[in-house]
Design a binder for these strands. Structure first.
Lengths: 202, 202
DNA sequence: AGCATCATGTAATTTGTTACATGATTCT
DNA sequence: AGAATCATGTAACAAATTACATGATGCT
């Protein structure tokens, strides 16, 4: 069974949501860790309802727009998400990141072009870092200090914290590579592998 | 077009390889960043040959076993991988990590169980860290210091360096979460992180 | 004797992506 | 006027996983 269904259940374990809500939340909370399209959300919700993991809590009808179907998790669903969460994971080696793969090809590319790409990547990750940092601030306000380990917000903060560290790492790594390439470029005995010499192409 | 084909080309840009070699190298070099099954490798090689991006360099026949088909990259292939590498990437939010998703559900789980899982994860990442570190040492010996930016080994080191930092981050994050949960778990003893504490379920 | 390695591949199935379709409302 | 938002979904396609199939050799 795909983990995507458990991503849905993980959200529904916290509060009742519609399919639309779920998609939105993926971009605001689980954001960088899980993304899913409507094509997967709606059929999966139907399936999970049939299996009794969730149930329709109610339908909001605004006359002019499609019915908003709110789902809530059932006790069976709760047990299912707990059972899955508790299963030990084997680390997957399959984290695919295009930029990393491209970095592996640095030797094929004019250094200045590569530096440009790395600065581009760095900027993207900086943006996301800011996003996470403000998200984290916001959540820290809401956290119930009483029973932190049973508080969903504390769990969200774990994940956000990971995101923050990940973005910092990415930014730092980009900067360090840029430095390395600058040194290499500086020596300029470059018998370079050819193509688009200076500023821009494709 | 899937990036997987460019993973193949990235390897073939460095040296001629067979489909089997490619699979092996994914576990020794690109390891954590790209994985692929034989079902994708062989058909993709056929397709790329038809498109003129690679060509059959030779076939080694050992009588008793299947022919070993060595492929080499063509000039068209070289241009293709360069063009792809130079294309700016838009950061993808889709990095899926089951453990991160499970962490999001910490609040549902008995803290001690969660701590056990985090220790398990930490151990896995420690193993991989050691692997990367020794890999990096090995490669640093081979690096040609003359023109570092045109040296494929230097590019590999960029990627390995990322892996090293990533594993360190993961380990540190696990440790910090464990500490947090220990505090939450509270007044109890909470022995030092080390012995796999048994008393487990599913 | 039994299992891992080398080496190619195919088949079946599940996942995931991209695009499309509808349609009133509110924001710019 | 035109775009974005809310809200459901479907269809077509692309990609990935899992399992299977073959088969000699070498290692334990």
């Amino acid at each position: 069974m795909s983990s995507s269904r458990y991503a849905l259940l993980s959200l529904l374990a916290r509060e009742p949501l519609s399919g639309y809500d779920i998609k939105q939340q993926m971009n605001n909370r689980l954001a960088p860790f899980w993304k899913i399209g409507s094509n997967q959300v709606y059929p999966e919700l139907t399936k999970m309802e049939e299996e009794g993991l969730i149930r329709l809590q109610g339908v909001e009808q605004h006359t002019y727009r499609p019915a908003r179907k709110l789902y809530e998790i059932t006790e069976a669903g709760r047990q299912a998400i707990i059972a899955w969460t508790v299963e030990p994971v084997e680390m997957d080696y399959g984290t695919r990141d295009d930029f990393l793969l491209k970095t592996y090809n640095t030797w094929l590319i004019d250094p200045q072009t590569m530096v440009d790409r790395m600065e581009h990547a760095r900027r993207q990750h900086e943006e996301r870092l800011f996003f996470y940092e403000s998200k984290a601030e916001e959540l820290k306000q809401q956290r119930r200090l009483a029973s932190p380990h049973a508080d969903p917000i504390a769990s969200t903060l774990f994940v956000i914290e990971f995101g923050i560290r990940w973005e910092r790492l990415y930014i730092q790594w980009c900067e360090d590579m840029i430095k390395d390439l600058a040194i290499a470029n500086g020596k300029q005995d470059v018998p370079d592998p050819g193509p688009p010499s200076s500023s821009e192409e494709p």
